[in-house]
Design a protein around this nucleic acid. Sequence first.
DNA 1: GTCTGTTTAGGGAGGG
DNA 2: CCCTCCCTAAACAGAC
Length: 445
Amino acid sequence: MLTQKLYPDVNGSMSTGANVSPMTTTYSMNSMAMAQMNCSPHQTPMFGSGMLNAGMPSSMPGMNRLTPRMNDSMNDAGAQLGYGAIGSPIANMNACMGGSMPAINTYNTSIGRGDLNGGDTSPNSALQRARADKTYRRSYTHAKPPYSYISLITMAIQNSPQKMLTLSEIYQFIMDLFPFYRQNQQRWQNSIRHSLSFNDCFIKVPRTPDKPGKGSFWSLHPDSGNMFENGCYLRRQKRFKDEKKELMRAAHHKSPSHSVDSSNSSGKKTPVIQHVDDKNHHHNMDKANDNNLSAMINLHPSTKLDVDQMNLLNGNANGELHAMHQHQHQHQNMSHEELSAMINRSHQHLALAGDHHQSMLHPMNHHLKQEPSGAGYTPSNHPFSITRLLPAESKSDIKMYADMQYAGYNTLSPLPNSIHSHGAIGNDYYNSPSLYHSSTGTTSL
DNA sequence: GTCTGTTTAGGGAGGG
DNA sequence: CCCTCCCTAAACAGAC
């Protein structure tokens, strides 16, 4: 089944989204919701219960890391996501920030959801109504989301049932969720690929013989679980570095052949040379030549560790992952189901270990800053938590988002087909005339 | 030919 | 000012 969609690009012409791999895209919000409803143990704490209406603390220490762009985008993202309801992150942020985000109130009143002004009769209401026309709204709908590419990739992977996705599926997830990324695809997709290759937090999982296709699967490094520990997907506290890869690199660079490494898979013809440029020093040190476990295991026999050694280095969960790769390399007959089950077990192990795992089992993460004790943010209630974008409990917001975003696109809704066709996530919602009516543009848009 | 993946390079921005 | 994180562009090679 091919789920490729057509999206209008900047010029209004139609362009295809990323090519969807032969593997059916199953990371839909629907499946996410179902998984949550089933209380799957595979769900990480990061995406546990939705907290859409959770009370927000009166102070927002995390906000001081917002760049101006983020603040702008925050307004836009909130608008485009339809987060105008009382208790929604944007509304709460606005309240917390002393109403310094006028656009949000504009949206709240204009779209008739969560009227924070309580039936505004002030002279401003006319202006707000004027601003409520679609032209004004649309000026915000395709603003760049405040999330980094690493965040977006993490969201996509975390929301996939198998906890791993192909590159094209990651593209698709991002375009489904953020209309902004249906534009200039070459630009941001290049950045996505760069992020995947460059960051240790992403690992490449080879395809299995039973799942032929283009490209590998991408998953999250089991130890990278607290990159967005407080649930805020804006900016990582600290770049995740895989100590084992660091060791591998160190060992590799000690080997006589490292100075001119023609065996690497780099696209560059030139030999890999360590740069002394301070600016980019970390680039080479962080990433070096290999960023994936299979490469670590397969490409450098001189530094290859056996599974037991890997387990010692990684702890059980990660060790299993390494063992999986080793197993794959040796036998090439592991089924996709077996593979994904192992990935899930690995993540589950870490999820069950919880914070203690992060802090105790992985000293590498000790440097990560902890939120102030009074901040009160959990992975699920942070204003920029993905749970606020894709919670099962926020069906109405998802629908609002769809309605707001794609009212002009008619049948070109970006939401996964399952939402529209199966209706599993929103059966009750779509079957409720009042809910449906109140969230469509026919009432207040 | 297109897609995927790797790497280099440089600039912007925030925090200490 | 320096370090770090992030974004973007681009070159290139291998896989499909």
